[in-house]
Nucleic acid binder design. Sequence first.
DNA 1: CGGTAACCTGGGAT
DNA 2: AATCCCAGGTTAC
Length: 401
Amino acid sequence: MHSLSLATVMKRTRSASCKSPSLPSTPLSPQTRHKTCCSKPTSVSICYRSRKPKPILGSLNESSKSDHAKWVPLNLAPQELCLPLTFPTGQTFRWRKTGPSQYTGVVGSHLISLKHIENGDVCYYLHHTDSEIDARTALLDFLNARVSLTDVWKEFSASDARFAELACYLGGARVLRQDPLECLIQFLCSSNNNIQRITKMVDYISSLGNYLGTVGDFKFHTFPSVEKLSLISEEELRNAGFGYRAKYITGTVNFLRAKPDGEEWLKSLRMLDLQEAIDALCTLPGVGPKVAACIALFSLDQHHAIPVDTHVWRIATKYLLPELAGSRLTPKLSSRVAEAFVSKYGKYAGWAQTLLFIAELPSQKALLPPQLRTVEQSKHTVEEDSETEIGGRETTSVFQS
DNA sequence: CGGTAACCTGGGAT
DNA sequence: AATCCCAGGTTAC
């Protein structure tokens, strides 16, 4: 039950509300729907699930009256960055929704909130930082701001009509540029796992880092260094509910610790070609082709890395390589899929994959008109789509996740 | 080299 | 209630 409550191993004296009180295991989270990326910010309060009288402000009272004075424009238009399509869609598991169209997380040692304002533009708020200049620089770097999503998508759309149509509804879905160590550990947790549990596991590990502050109900920490990570034993991780991934983590941490500077070694993979980077990553325990591609794409500037999973496989067999429909996903076929993506979309193929992947997520499908929703799993090969348009009206039905 | 069976866990479906 | 299936896979035969 309390398998993943982080209080156990942590040196934090106060084992306060570490039970993650509002992890949305229940399907009742009405506010997770956002019809477009820029919905109107009607209420200012943080979304509580149960009304507790206690006004949760954490240590920093960021909700004082002259609050929005501290919100700084990022000069990123909504078509360049849509927060709900970028943060809760599986590239990072360390950001939290802390308000209507608002997300909070850590970049380096900076604790930052991002939100859309009325016109859809993005602003940021620094809860904790030693240097506002550094924070902004780090944030822009983290957001891959040097890449123009508009330009990149223009090319995808030119070569793929379906992409062009999806792009109309899912604009602003960016690829982040995360810290390699942080990315690596997160995706070690991701194998054969679901987003909710991955998030809890990542949260458990993160609590070893330096505490930066609390926003909403959530505590935030810097991501722990390799040295810090080496303090956790495999047994502790197993007891915390990591399952067989426990040995992946400790094994990889030990591997990195054996290097003169493991973190620097990881970063140096940015200099390599994609295949070399993948090969290097695959020598780490628990890292196979899929996880390696995720790390390469989301943290190592390998913009044409293609993480081939079941979703992408489904997409590929439907639109790209129909002759492979019906086969099982093997490593070899997986690299064939990756090649197909790259030859169709070019050097930013990973960015195209990201959008197509998001379009497959049950949580995002509601954003799409029915004819753009690809058909479900493999279960019923019979497609009974003739029945789905009951209401006649747009389906805002309940598809939480 | 290609195919298969374990591997941990929890939530939802049957 | 018991069981199966699935979740952005990897590893060992």
